[in-house]
Design a protein around this nucleic acid. Structure first.
Lengths: 240, 240
DNA sequence: GAGTGGTCTAGACCACGTG
DNA sequence: ACGTGGTCTAGACCACTCA
């Protein structure tokens, strides 16, 4: 070979990939145990885990808690510039959505929120923390920070559905423009625990800051996605 | 403790984080060797590497080839919906850009390109492969597939600068609308090698498909970024 | 040529999930 | 209760980088 030797764990990655294809393992199906795999491929657990981590990074398989390795489902297509809501997104693509509200509370705007929104520090804001599933796999957790001036009594509503729908129907508020930020990060602390993944698992962060037509702050949305769960798809320009 | 014991490598992650902050290690500065770190923190290289990998996933440090671990520079802000070009982006933020053309060729549209663009399979297209640096760190590689009908002779031009600028100035073509796709993936093969990172390093994929006002295919752009290199920032809606 | 990071072995113990 | 994945040790060899 002209280059450095192709290391064992990369060979294993390829063989495992082929094996998964050949066996036609379907979405969410469990792989054999690490010990069994390391025997079958005549290597140690450490090396098998390195190969499995590669496939995890590529998004072919994922792990859940201490339960084992599973085949990753197809990515969800997602357009953060639209506001049709998670539930409609998922059902339109033929999957089963579910949302769980982990907590909701009235709190005071901390410094970072004040800096991001222009709201004075200490102003009351609603804070909702939710977990969202597709086909019973938790794909993201989401923090919503909402200006209570525009939706008094929001906390006594059910927050398991679209907040935007509620905004429109109950409070007659529509977002006019958004500032969106997206970048890869590692899932840690509360976010990792809530999704049942290891500390440091690769994730994607999506933040949306929404204002209405008068330029007033409506909502700040911070989403923490599993890295293999979505494919962002946006159309810009032209007449649309 | 109420939860599982806080594992050593997470403690090390935190201590290393603090240490880097305390020492005020600056952007691109090198960390001590793994063996030295494992001695200093009384543990093995394997565990230190686990801690370093955590910090890598979080984007605080990165590795280069076999040269060691370095402190990650600030993320580049990037708006894929605009077309002001890499060079202007970078200089506007006070950094030094550089672009290297790794190859350029006239080829025939393969199946996947034909499916993505609507171009008939086998149609001639320009294919340019470039590497882009910020402050001499390679942050991304990029494949451009360009419809040669709109820019004959492009390959004999220098392609180390903005393709868009050339489109406008030389060929009087302006992109009208784009379809953008973004998702995290693992850098492999050519892309990993060209960026001098290990196989399977976390990356971010950005694809832009551009058409002109008549709906004709102009260009397909596939970018492979280091995961810690950028922060996507888009403004949508409002009057703009 | 010395030292580095990249890879790999052959074990071990533990907390947790599942039956 | 068993087997799992998660963590950790104490080594080793190699290819590569850098002085």
């Amino acid at each position: 070979m002209s280059r450095t030797d192709y290391p064992v764990y990369l060979q294993l990655r390829d063989r495992l990939w082929d094996w998964i294809e050949d066996e036609k393992l379907s979405s969410q199906q469990k792989l054999p145990s690490e010990r069994e795999l390391s025997e079958r491929f005549s290597t140690t657990r450490v090396t098998i885990r390195q190969a499995l981590s590669q496939l995890e990074a590529e998004g072919l398989i994922f792990r859940s808690n201490r339960r084992g390795w599973f085949v990753t489902p197809e990515r969800l297509r997602y357009d953060p510039s639209r506001d049709i809501g998670f539930t409609r997104y998922v059902t339109e693509q033929g999957f089963r959505p579910r949302t769980e509200t982990l907590f909701k509370q009235l709190t005071e705007a901390p410094k970072w929120l004040s800096e991001a929104t222009g709201l004075p520090e200490g102003t009351p804001v609603y804070h909702i923390f939710r977990r969202r599933y597709v086909n019973e796999r938790g794909l993201l957790v989401e923090h919503n920070y909402i200006n209570p001036q525009h939706c008094p009594g929001l906390l006594s509503e059910s927050t398991d559905l679209s907040i935007w729908q509620m905004f429109k129907e109950k409070y007659n508020r529509v977002p006019d423009h958004r500032d969106i930020e997206i970048y890869p990060l590692a899932l840690k602390g509360l976010e990792a625990d809530s999704l049942g993944v290891n500390q440091g698992t690769a994730g994607l962060y999506i933040q949306r800051l929404s204002h209405d037509q008068e330029g007033e702050f409506l909502e700040l949305d911070r989403e923490y996605w599993l890295h293999d769960a979505l494919k962002i798809s946006v159309h810009v320009g032209g007449r649309h």
